[in-house]
């Protein structure tokens, strides 16, 4: 088991290296640089700035420099957030994203699985259709529509919850962002679970269990759930990585300080180091969660063996 994990982690290194290389050069081919402002800089000021940030060196030297620093855990200074290094920016904002993302993930996974299983048990009933319609709604409404509507209704009209901001990070501040972030994923989990649950319930061993007169609840929870969860778990990896590393939409609409927006802001502002930093972060998350998913697989499905 430990060997499996280690091997997987080792094999992730080249992946991350390729990601870093690709992003580095892609970023640099894009037109414009971090210092192209609406108000242009004096040419001599621009020169000094480029020198200060090593942008006057050949690209390959800059690349080597970046890799070397990266190996030492240094993500470099941010080009646009001049008062911070990229590592500081990420360190400051990641906890917010993690908290928000963890709640959203929790809501999405447990809510989705519960709803999906319930719908599967009542397949083709009115409840099934109603629940799944609501779930589909979660998938079809973009969260940049859902989020401002929630904020408008609950903050501006009803005045129950704050319109935005992290505030004290309490339930009041988190409720709307968590819902906005969780709903689309919840819907996906619900659909996946429903599908696999229906299938599992038809499987022989479940039918047998039911035929023996075991209560439905016991059959579902003890026997069916385990098998039915496998497809949902495979979806968990990418979703967890995506949700935990923040969402530019939710952060923008609710004015929250997560890492999600750095990614987009960095790309649009040509903050080379910030973009690279977030890219590395997201890649690491993806790798780690894919690994976790593989382990979970093995736990849920005895047929899967560590290679």
């Amino acid at each position: 088991m430990i060997r499996f994990v280690l091997r997987r982690l080792m094999s992730a290194l080249p992946t991350i290296f390729i990601v870093v290389t690709l992003s580095f050069f892609l970023m640099r081919v894009a037109p414009g640089g971090p210092f192209n402002l609406e108000r242009p800089l004096e040419p001599q000021v621009l020169e000094s700035l480029k020198r200060a940030f090593l942008l006057d060196r050949p690209l390959i030297v800059q690349y080597g420099h970046y890799l070397w620093n990266l190996l030492h855990g240094d993500l470099g200074p941010s080009f646009i957030y001049r008062d911070f290094t990229v590592a500081e920016l990420i360190a400051k904002s990641l906890p917010y994203s993690l908290t928000l993302g963890a709640w959203a993930l929790l809501v999405a996974v447990f809510g989705g699985i519960a709803i999906g299983s319930y719908a599967a048990l009542k397949q083709n009933s009115f409840v099934d259709y109603a629940v799944m319609s609501v779930a589909s709604f979660g998938i079809t409404v973009p969260n940049f529509v859902l989020a401002p509507i929630l904020s408008f209704v609950f903050a501006v009209v009803l005045r129950w919850l704050p319109a935005g901001g992290w505030g004290d990070g309490g339930p009041a501040n988190l409720l709307l962002p968590v819902i906005s972030l969780a709903l689309p994923q919840l819907a996906v989990f619900a659909r996946i679970t429903r599908g696999s649950m229906i299938e599992t319930l038809r499987a022989d061993h479940i039918r047998t269990a039911r035929a023996y007169g075991l209560p439905t609840r016991v059959v579902v929870i003890v026997h069916a759930m385990r098998a039915a969860l496998v497809p949902a778990v495979s979806y968990l990896g990418p979703v967890a990585a995506a949700v935990l590393t923040g969402s530019v939409v939710v952060e923008t609409v609710y004015a929250l300080p997560g890492v999600g927006r750095y990614f987009v802001l960095g790309a649009l502002n040509r903050d080379y180091t910030l973009v690279m930093g977030t890219v590395v972060l997201i890649s690491v998350f993806i790798v780690v969660f894919n690994l976790i998913v593989d382990i979970l697989y093995a736990v849920l499905d005895p047929r899967v063996r560590y290679e």
């Binding site: 080249p14 992003s23 890219v279 790798v287």
Partner: peptide, 19 residues
């Protein structure tokens, strides 16, 4: 394919569109 799975795709779309 696995490597590509670990790429943050939004970034690439954004870069492509910007570029």
């Amino acid at each position: 394919v696995e490597i590509l799975y670990s790429l943050p795709f939004m970034f690439f779309v954004i870069m492509l569109v910007v570029f």
